[in-house]
């Protein structure tokens, strides 16, 4: 799943990566691009056993362009979640509680980005440069 928004600069990086990967690995996975978030994402995962989310992240802890593998459990302590907004960890908990057919294995491949605020902007230079690296990392996971 390429997550993000094409209109907003680096926020597009997950979608752009998935667009490059899809023709190379269409025999190994289904590919989804989406700008949805929160609980609305739940619908898209139902029926799959494994999922890889490719997304932008903005933590300020890494130089822009850094590709990081995250397991959802690691995401939990990151935020102090509002009870009314649902992130990936809550989504997984919800699915497990409801016992719906949902990926047992979740991987998040995220790239630290610089700019997600410019409407109509291109990828920032470090993110554009590292796009292939993001593609390669996801391909490695797909090969497993």
């Amino acid at each position: 799943m390429g997550l993000g928004n094409e209109l907003f600069s680096d926020d597009a990086v997950g979608i752009l990566a998935v667009r490059k990967i899809a023709p190379m690995a269409s025999d190994r996975a289904d590919f989804v691009e989406t700008s949805l978030h929160g609980v609305a994402l739940l619908d898209l995962f139902i029926g799959y056993r494994k999922a890889i989310i490719v997304d932008a992240m903005k933590t300020g802890r890494f130089p822009p362009g850094t590709v990081v593998d995250i397991v959802p459990e690691e995401l939990e302590p990151v935020a102090n979640p509002s009870p009314h907004y649902t992130g990936i960890p809550e989504l997984i908990k919800l699915a497990r509680q409801l016992k719906i057919e949902f990926p047992e294995e979740f991987k998040i491949v995220a790239m630290e980005v610089a700019n997600t605020c410019d409407m109509g902007g291109e990828l920032s230079a470090p993110v554009a440069k590292a796009l292939e690296q993001l593609v390669a990392r996801v391909m490695t996971h797909l090969a497993k």
Partner: peptide
Amino acid sequence: EMAFRAYDPCHGCATHALPGQMPL
């Protein structure tokens, strides 16, 4: 917060980048 949540103000234009919570 309930006072504004009832209106469901849309923060959807806020960044989609992880961790995906409404920044407040």
